[in-house]
C-alpha cells in the first residue's frame, strides 16, 4: 500500500513537471514605452507599459507606472489599444523571423564558398509615401486617398483587407 502511494506521488510529480515544461505561447515585449490604455467604452484609463501577451488566453500583461502589473483580456481593450498590441506583436515576430532567417543563412554560408556568394543589392527602396508597392502595384493605405484617386479617375476601388502587412510579414 505504501509503495502504491509513493508511486502515485511520483507519477503526479512527473505529470506536473511535464505541464510546467509545456511551452506557453507568451510573447514578451522588451522595448515598449508607457502609454495610456483605455477599455472598450473609453471610460476607464490607465497609464502602463506592455509587458507580454498570452496568445492562447488572449490576455496581455501591463506594468503600471508604480511598478504593479495588471492582466487584461484583449477584447476588453479599445480598438486603438488592440491595434497597438498587434503592431508590437508583429514587430517581435518580424524580429524573430529575421533572426531565424539569419541563422539559416549562416548555416548555408558555412557550406558555400565566399567567392560564390551573391551580394545583396544596395539599391535603396523607393519612397512611395502613402502607398505600399507589391508585385508592381501601388496599394494606397488610406480610404481617403483611395477615394480621392477613384473620384479623379472615375474608377471603382478594390479594397484588400488582410491580416498583416501586404509587403511584409503576414
Amino acid at each position: 500500500m505504501k509503495w502504491i502511494l509513493v508511486f502515485t506521488i511520483l507519477c503526479c510529480a512527473s505529470v506536473n513537471q511535464a505541464i510546467a515544461q509545456t511551452e506557453v505561447p507568451v510573447i514578451k515585449f522588451t522595448d515598449t514605452n508607457p502609454r495610456e490604455w483605455a477599455d472598450d467604452s473609453n471610460q476607464n484609463r490607465l497609464t502602463a507599459r506592455l509587458l507580454s501577451r498570452n496568445t492562447e488566453a488572449n490576455k496581455v500583461l501591463l506594468e503600471c507606472t508604480d511598478g504593479t502589473t495588471v492582466e487584461v483580456v484583449l477584447s476588453d481593450l479599445s480598438m486603438s489599444d488592440r491595434k497597438y498590441i498587434a503592431r508590437q506583436t508583429s514587430k517581435v515576430k518580424r524580429a524573430a523571423h529575421r533572426l531565424e532567417r539569419q541563422r539559416r543563412q549562416g548555416d548555408e554560408d558555412l557550406l558555400v564558398d565566399a567567392s560564390q556568394r551573391v551580394q545583396p543589392s544596395a539599391k535603396p527602396k523607393k519612397n512611395l509615401g502613402n502607398t505600399r508597392r507589391v508585385s508592381n502595384l501601388d496599394w494606397l493605405r488610406t480610404p481617403q486617398k483611395a477615394r480621392a484617386v477613384a473620384k479623379a479617375k472615375d474608377l471603382p476601388i478594390i479594397w484588400f483587407r488582410v491580416l498583416g502587412d501586404i509587403d511584409g510579414y503576414m
Binding site: 506583436t89 479617375k153 478594390i158
Partner: peptide, 12 residues
C-alpha cells in the same frame, strides 16, 4: 480598372 487600397486588419 481599379484603385487599389489595402488595410491591415490585425487587431480587429
Amino acid at each position: 480598372h481599379f484603385v487599389p487600397l489595402n488595410s491591415n486588419i490585425e487587431g480587429e
